[in-house]
Simulated assay, not measured.
Amino acid sequence: MKKIYLLAILLLSVATAFSQSKMACCHKTTTAPSATKKFAMLASNSKFVMAHANPKRMRFQSSIGKLINYKTADGLTANAYELKAKKPTNNYLLVIHEWYGLNDYVKREAEKLYSDLGNVNVIALDLYDGKIADNRQDAGKLMQAVKEPRAQSIIKGAIAYAGTKARIATLGWCFGGGWSLQSTLLAGKQATACVMYYGMPEQSIDKLKTLNTDVLGNFANKDQFINTKIVAQFKENMERAGKKLYLHQYDADHGFANPSNPIYDSEATKQAYAFTLAYLKTKLK
C-alpha cells in the first residue's frame, strides 16, 4: 500500500512538472514597443493626427543638391538627397524627415544647414522609400508602414556610404527626431553629434549608455504627445546613463520649426536653430 501511495505521488509530481513545462513553453512573453514604434503607433490616435495641420505647399529647387542611390544591407537600395562638401572632409550630417517624407521643405532645410555649417557633407535620408504625403492622413499611414529593420538598413547603408572614417552627426524633426537618436545609436563610435526636434526619445537606459556622443534636444512645451513628462523622463534617463543632454524647451507646439506648418513659431525656430548650429559647429570642427 505504501509503495502504491509513493508511486501515485511520483506520477502526480511528473504530471505537474510536465504541465508547468508546457505552459512555460507555450507562454508568449510580451515586450514593450521600441521608441520609434511607440511614436508610429500615435498615428492611430485621431487626436494626434488632427493635431497636425496639413502643410502649406512649398516648392524648392536646388542647384547644388542631387538625388542619390546607395546599397543597403538587406540587398535593396535606398534614396537620399545629398549635398557634397566643397572640399574633401569626413564630416557628415544625416538629416531625417518629418512624417510627411523627404519633401521640398526637408531638402531646403538640408541645404540651409549645409550652407550655414560650412564644409560638411549633408545627406537627407528617405525612410519612406520614395513616398511623400501632402496631408496628415496619408502621413500617418506612411509613418505606420515603416518597418524598423528596413529603416535601420537605410540608415546603416548611409553610414556605409559615408565610409568607415566618417564622423557622423544626425538631425531630425518629429518622426525624424526619434530616428535621429536611433541613427546615432546605429553609428556607434562614428557618432559625433545628435540633434532631436520634438521626437520620441529612446527609453532604454542600457541603450542610452552606448551613445558615443551627447544629445541636443529641442522640445515644445505645448506638445501633447512628446510632452513635458516624456521629456523630463528622457532627461533623467540620460543622467542615469551618464550622458549629457543639452535640453531646450520652448513655449510652442509640436512642429513649431516647420515653416510649411500653420503653427510655425518663428521666434522658437530662430532660438532652436541658433543652439543647433552652435552645437553642430562645435562637434563638426
Rank of each mutant, 00 (worst) to 15 (best):
D126P: 00
Q61W: 01
L102N: 02
S46M: 10
R108A: 14
N119A: 10
E109H: 08
Y92R: 03
V49Y: 02
L113I: 05
A85R: 04
N121F: 07
A51V: 04
I123S: 00
E82R: 13
N54G: 12
H52L: 14
N121W: 01
N69Q: 13
V120K: 05
V122G: 11
P33I: 06
A35K: 02
I68D: 02
S62T: 15
P55T: 03
L113K: 02
F48N: 06
R59E: 14
T72G: 03
D129K: 13
F48P: 04
K87S: 14
N45S: 13
A124V: 07
I123V: 13
A35F: 00
G75F: 03
N121I: 04
E111N: 01
N69S: 15
T36A: 15
Y105M: 06
E111W: 04
D104Q: 13
K37G: 13
A110T: 07
K47C: 05
L93C: 06
T77F: 05
M41V: 10
I96S: 10
S46I: 14
A40I: 08
Y114F: 15
N91L: 08
L93R: 04
G101I: 02
R57Y: 03
K107D: 01
A110M: 03
E82V: 12
L76K: 15
F48I: 08
L42V: 05
A124H: 00
P55W: 01
S62P: 06
Y105E: 14
K86Q: 13
Q61N: 12
E109L: 09
K71A: 14
S44E: 13
N103S: 06
L102A: 10
G65H: 05
G101T: 10
L83E: 06
A85C: 12
L117F: 09
A110N: 07
L67Y: 00
V106M: 15
Y70D: 11
Y100K: 01
V49A: 02
A53S: 13
A78D: 04
N121V: 11
N119M: 09
V95A: 14
K107F: 02
N54F: 07
L76P: 03
L93Q: 00
A85V: 06
Y92G: 09
K37N: 12
R59L: 11
K47D: 15
Y100E: 10
S63L: 10
H97E: 06
G75S: 04
Q61F: 03
T77Q: 14
Y128D: 08
I68C: 05
I123A: 03
R57L: 07
Y128H: 08
V49W: 04
K87F: 10
M58T: 15
G101Q: 07
H97P: 01
A110E: 08
K71M: 02
H52M: 12
D116V: 01
N103W: 00
D129F: 04
E98T: 13
L76Y: 06
G75P: 01
F39P: 05
L83Y: 00
A51L: 07
Y92K: 08
K56H: 11
D104M: 09
N45A: 10
K71T: 14
G118R: 04
H52S: 12
I64P: 00
K107S: 05
D74C: 12
D116N: 12
K87T: 15
L76A: 15
M58Y: 12
N45Q: 10
L83P: 01
D74T: 02
G65E: 03
K84I: 11
P88N: 11
V95P: 00
I68G: 01
N69H: 14
A51F: 07
L94M: 08
Y128K: 12
